[in-house]
Amino acid sequence: MPRKSIWLVPALVLGLLFVLWPWIGGSLYLVNLLTGAVIWGIFAVSYDLVLGWTGEISFGHALWFGVGIYGVGLLVQATHWDTLVALLVVAVLTAPVSFVIHLVSLRLRGAYFAMITFAIAEFAYLLVQNATALTGGTNGLTGVMLSSYLLSPNVLYAVPATVLVIAVVSLRAVSARRVGRIVHAVRDNPTRAALFGHSEVLVKGLTLAASSALAAVAGGLYLAYQGMAFPDAMGSNTSFTVLLMVVIGGADSIWGPAIAGIALYLLENSLSATTAHWSLWLGVVYVLVVRFLPLGLGGLRPERLWPWHGRTGILQEGLPVAADHHKGGRD
């Protein structure tokens, strides 16, 4: 397909530039700041799989971020494995665990799904906070021996940057293929998709499992970035923050949440110094986006502004199921 191959080379160059720019020239401060931002970008992309791909609202996504943080931290402490190997192992193990938990959560939909995800995440948060002997409790998880190559700020940046590029590219590829279409069909009309043999619980469960694994990767990288972690990193505020990022970025696109995650992290870290009320303005922008731009900033494409444009986004139509229905589909 010639049209695609035209874009291949510039895209490859851009991707490499994104990963390798610290070696070309970047201040330590900037590299360090962007590392955190890119990790939040990965986390936002993982939440896009929940909000944008399954169409369910989860208020407990921080749980999977925490699984990554504490999973990698405790695994490295116990085995002294290479950090990235531990990260991979945790991510691979997170997927089936998340799948099983979501088989239970997915018995509920709408507001009830939102509440059970919130409750399970809070439960895990309380466990981590109280299991002082294992996790250090509120004193934080410290003394994790990270692999020595991660001590280089450039490498510490390049790893999450690579993960983000791979995640965005592969999710866009999946989205255009059969698997992605099935996922979106299940989101938009679960009953019809079921008639074609695609079980709603199975499809959404697998999507959520992939999302959790990616969130765990973000969490593990966050631990590597911070060197230590506190239970609050997996508290409800983390869940709310990532939700705000994805809604503002636009749950209908993959670029939107990735860029919103990076940009909002950068804004927060540069603006908190000048305005103490960053969260207030973020909240105002978020409410306005929900009200006026249901597709988020990522939906601001010229053809979308055309009033007769046929396609509508998930949040514009409302979720596929009504909030007070806890089972069954829209039809």
């Binding site: 169409g55 609202i57 208020f59 709408g110 507001a111 939102a114 709310f240 939700l243 705000l244 809604v247 009320h277 969260s279 207030l280 973020l282 909240g283 105002v284 978020y286 409410v287 929900v290 009200r291 249901p294 998930i314 949040l315 514009q316 139509e317 409302g318 979720l319 009504a322 909030a323 007070d324």
Partner: peptide
């Protein structure tokens, strides 16, 4: 749009807290 309403009430909570 129940989903939008749910997301909005979350925003209102965050704004009032801040």
């Amino acid at each position: 749009n129940p989903g939008g309403q749910l997301l909005t009430t979350l925003g209102v909570m965050l704004i009032l807290s801040e």
